[in-house]
Design a protein around this nucleic acid. Structure first.
Lengths: 122, 122
DNA sequence: TTATGTGTTATACAGGATATAATACAAGTA
DNA sequence: TACTTGTATTATATCCTGTATAACACATAA
């Protein structure tokens, strides 16, 4: 999996890494048990500090998306905790939906986008 | 319209204000041309500094959602610029959709949520 | 005129978040 | 041993956030 960082983005680097791995899992590009690049390898690859990658991995681990061992490195969790979206995520979704409507995107078009994203499409 | 601030939230206060007004416009609770509370009145109401509210209004103005005059205060724009969602918003939507799926929310349930939010429902 | 209520701008300050940097440690593998 | 892995610590610099002021321009009402 190839990670791309936008250094101009408002979103912090560690959050961009976290989000891309979440989307990778969602699309199936990253499978359960699959190994992620090591912290140092990834930091070298995308040109950021190892601590920044470590922060992203720590967050993903805390959320239950990945697990880490010194032996096998970091891998996608076999059993990701369920529970749907928490309240903050729902609120963010609500805001995006409102903005889409306000900015003239039709309901059908918006739901198509949601469906495509859910299924892992670009 | 009643604004509520969560001081424990990760989301900055000025962004919470901005998001709630966007959702208010999306749901129809705030209509085009409707007057928003003045900066000082709102800051008194929710217990934050006037500059924080001013930042939220400046952002909303910059995004085209509201317009301001020294005479009539701040009002919801009559013509909000179209163009749908920008790339960063789409990416955020993609991430939320992925997370919903990963956390066991079914596609039908997710799309129902998206539809409800689009239409302004809670 | 005076007073009040708008939005706007500018400054300074404190606290936290972000990212980098340089180390160090523990555990496992070759 | 030597290497890689995740993890942790400390320090530093920068930016964001929110607050606290103050001042200004404009419009309206007393």
């Amino acid at each position: 999996m190839i990670l791309t960082i936008d250094f101009e983005s408002e979103s912090p680097i560690y959050m961009q890494i976290r989000d891309q791995i979440v989307r990778g899992i969602g699309s199936g590009e990253l499978e359960s048990g699959e190994r992620l690049p090591s912290i140092r390898a990834l930091s070298d690859d995308i040109g950021v500090n190892p601590m920044t990658v470590s922060k992203a991995y720590s967050l993903l681990k805390q959320e239950g998306f990945i697990s880490s061992t010194r032996k096998g490195g970091s891998v996608v969790s076999e059993k990701i905790p369920e529970g749907g979206l928490d309240d903050e995520k729902k609120l963010a979704l609500h805001t995006v939906a409102s903005e889409a409507r306000i900015r003239g995107m039709g309901e059908r078009e918006f739901l198509k986008l949601c469906s495509d994203y859910y299924r892992g499409g670009a």
